[in-house]
Amino acid sequence: MKIKKQLIKREIAGDTILVPVGKTVYDSNGLFVLNELAAFIWDILPEVSDEVQIVERILADYEVTREVASADTAQFLRKLREMGIID
C-alpha cells in the first residue's frame, strides 16, 4: 500500500511519532502518535497490498485473535484514508 504523504517516523521514549514534512504540513494537524500495533502496521504498509495481508502479518507476530486484528487494522486504515495518507 502506497503512503502518499511525506511523514518521517520518529521513536521518542517509547512512543512512535509521525512528523509531517514538505507539503504534508498543510493538511496535517501537527504530529501523529502511533500505538504499538499502528506502528507495526505503518512499518509493513509498503510491503503489503491489502488489508488481509496486514491481518496475516499481525497474526504471525502477535498473539491476538483474527477478529481483534481485523478490527484494529480496519480502524487504523480508515484513519489513514481520512487523512489522505493512503488511497
Binding site: I12, A13, D15, N29, G30, L31, M83
Partner: peptide, 23 residues
C-alpha cells in the same frame, strides 16, 4: 481537516511531561 484544531498542543504537553520525567 480543521486546521484550527491542531492536535499538537495535547501531544506537546504529553511529550514535554515525559521529557521532564526522563530528562
Amino acid at each position: 481537516m480543521n486546521k484550527k484544531s491542531r492536535t499538537e498542543p495535547y501531544i506537546s504537553t504529553y511529550l514535554h511531561s515525559k521529557g521532564r520525567k526522563l530528562g
